[in-house]
Amino acid sequence: MRRRSALAAVTTLAGTAIAGVVSRPGGNDRLLAAAREGSDDVTTETTQLLPETVHETTLYELTAPDPGPTVMVFGGIHGDERNGIEAAHDATEWGPDAGQLVVVPETDRVAVENDERGGIDGDLNRHFPAGEEPTSDLARGIWDAVERYDPDVVLDLHRSLGIYGFHREYVGQALFHSADAHAHGRAIADALTADAIPWYLPFHRFTPQESTAGGPLLFQKAAAELDATAYLFETTAFLLNHATMTEQSRLVTAHVLAAHGGLEYDTGIGVAGTGEPEQESETEPDGGTSA
């Protein structure tokens, strides 16, 4: 019996290793390579937000020679969500093909340095009430930069501990989006699932979800006051390691950039205004061509 049990254990381990290697999802190396290579003529400028204060943090402005959308990406609004910080840092070295890519990798620098969710004034992502002044010095400094760039698209990178719609307390594996981004939100979530989620982790599939307007989150304020198409991405630490969460954050950044025309890469999602998925093209205000 012992020999049979041992044989079963060894067979299982070997089978696991082989099946794991064979069936691992491929990610989307071509999309990330396109984001990294990009245009040769991209200019990069850095600016310090809230200079000479404890909140001082760097903003990266990558400008492509061709006109296109302004896409703002935020990491580190919660300082302990390292996946978003790393992915945003990675994006500061990308080369958009059109428009501007504006990245703030360590939005709440104090929280990032302390590796905590909130900084001096607590949770930064509750300091942006729509229709009102931001409620902390850091939030006001960040919002000044957002108003200055008047972005077409805002992406905020986060991480949860559980899975949205599965673990009642948590919001992971979801792409929350503004009301004008139904088609894009769904298409990007589906693309992320295809790129990063193997069929044998079915609960980890990404869910697109329209966000309620008027909340105190940065992406909600950008959507409400600047008419930006806004996304908040949540991966999960539930059964996923840091490298996987970071890779998912990179992928969503590249997909959002490509979907809105910042990258010349056919993700199958379509560039805003030219390739909306047919089903909802009439409801997209930026649909343009036929709606």
């Binding site: 019996m1 254990a9 089978g15 794991g20 069936s23 193997p198 069929w199 982790l201 059964l239 390691n241």
Partner: peptide, 27 residues
């Protein structure tokens, strides 16, 4: 043996994935 094998099949592949995400597999 069936008990041991079933327990191994249910626990070991999942435990490997829990330790390292890349080791998740259909098993």
């Amino acid at each position: 043996p069936a008990t041991v094998a079933t327990a191994i099949v249910l626990i070991v592949p999942f435990a490997l994935g829990w330790l390292r995400t890349e080791l998740f597999s259909p098993l």
